[in-house]
Structure formats: C-alpha cells, structure tokens
Simulated scan of single mutants.
Amino acid sequence: MTSKHLILAAATAVSLTLSACGESEPEVVGGTPDPMARELANAAPVELPPSITASRTYRCRDNSLAYVEFFNNNTANFRLEQGAEPTRLTAESAGGPYTADGITVSGSGSSVTIARPGAASQSCNSN
C-alpha cells in the first residue's frame, strides 16, 4: 500500500508543478532581453578590415631585407626591420605600384622593385 501512496503523491506533485506552466506570459530564459537590440538593429553595416593576401620577406640586391604585407584593398605594409612600425603604402589601382613617404614597391609577387629615399632603386626576391 505504501508504494501506491508514494506514486499518488509523486503524481500530485508533478501535476501541481506543471500547472504553473499555463501562465499567459512567456518565460524569459537567460535574464532580461538585450537593452541595445534596437540600436544594433538600426546600426550601420560593419566593414571588415582588409585581409592579408600575401606576407613576404624580400632579400634585396644589396643583401638587405624588406618585409611587405599585401592586403586585398590595394594597400601594403612595408618594413625594413621585422617587428618595426610599418609604413602603409597605397596603390592607385590593382597591380600598380604601392607608394607613400617616398617609398615605392612595384609588384607583389616573388620579385619586386623597391625604391626608398636615400637608396638606389633595387630588385628584391622573396625567400
């Protein structure tokens, strides 16, 4: 008899618990809704930063090294020392020379020509 009473008590407890689910308002799971949802929905689209298409180390004719990162938006970062602050170079059109601050990098493949102030223009090949 006691097992019947236990089963009846458990069924009653479950039915009382489930009766609270019949409320008219939905349950909010995870806390309050996002307070910035409206602002985010009306925000301007996000523009992704340019991606690197190639990152190359070049050995130049005078045995110096040049580090160039080429991006998909006709720009390149130029460094003479690894880890140094880069100079941002820009090309007027795709395939054109990258220039800024008197520095010019012509080409973007395994062989480029680099011209910079105080040094002769020279060809450089990637390692």
Results as ranks from 00 to 15, higher is better:
T113S: 11
E47H: 05
T104N: 15
F71E: 06
D62S: 14
Y67R: 10
T57A: 08
R56N: 01
R38C: 06
V68T: 02
A91I: 05
E92F: 04
A54P: 03
S55D: 07
A94V: 06
P33I: 01
Y67L: 01
E92M: 09
P50E: 11
N77Q: 11
S93T: 13
S108F: 14
R61T: 13
G118F: 05
T57P: 09
P35N: 07
A120G: 09
R61L: 11
S106W: 13
D34C: 01
S108I: 13
G109F: 03
D34A: 12
P33N: 06
A41M: 13
I103N: 10
S110R: 09
T104V: 14
F78K: 04
T53L: 09
A54K: 06
R59T: 12
E39K: 09
S64F: 05
A37W: 12
P35G: 12
D101W: 04
P45A: 08
S111G: 02
T99D: 14
A120S: 14
S93V: 05
P45V: 04
S93Q: 11
N74L: 02
S55Y: 00
V105I: 04
V105L: 05
V68S: 01
A100N: 14
G118R: 11
R88V: 08
S108M: 05
R116T: 06
A120K: 03
A115V: 05
V46D: 03
V112I: 10
S106T: 14
S51F: 07
S106C: 13
N74W: 05
E47A: 09
R38Q: 14
S64V: 14
G83F: 00
T57Y: 02
N42G: 02
N73Q: 10
G95R: 13
Q122Y: 00
P117I: 00
A43N: 06
F78P: 01
D62C: 06
G109K: 00
V105E: 06
A37F: 03
R79I: 03
L89V: 13
E39R: 02
N42E: 14
T53A: 10
R61M: 14
A84E: 12
T90P: 09
A66I: 15
N42F: 05
E92C: 09
G96K: 02
L48A: 10
S64A: 14
R59N: 10
R61Q: 15
V68L: 02
G83T: 01
N63W: 12
S111M: 03
A119K: 13
E81F: 06
E47G: 08
P35T: 04
R61G: 12
T53Y: 00
P97D: 03
A37G: 10
S111L: 02
Q82K: 09
A115I: 13
R116G: 01
L48E: 15
A100F: 09
T104A: 07
P117Y: 00
T53W: 04
M36N: 13
S121F: 00
D34Q: 05
P97T: 13
P33L: 07
A84L: 07
Q122C: 08
C60L: 12
C60H: 12
Y67P: 04
D34P: 07
S106E: 15
L65S: 15
A91M: 07
Y98M: 15
A84D: 07
Y67K: 08
E85I: 15
A76C: 00
T99K: 14
A54H: 05
N63C: 04
N77G: 08
S93E: 04
F70P: 01
N63R: 15
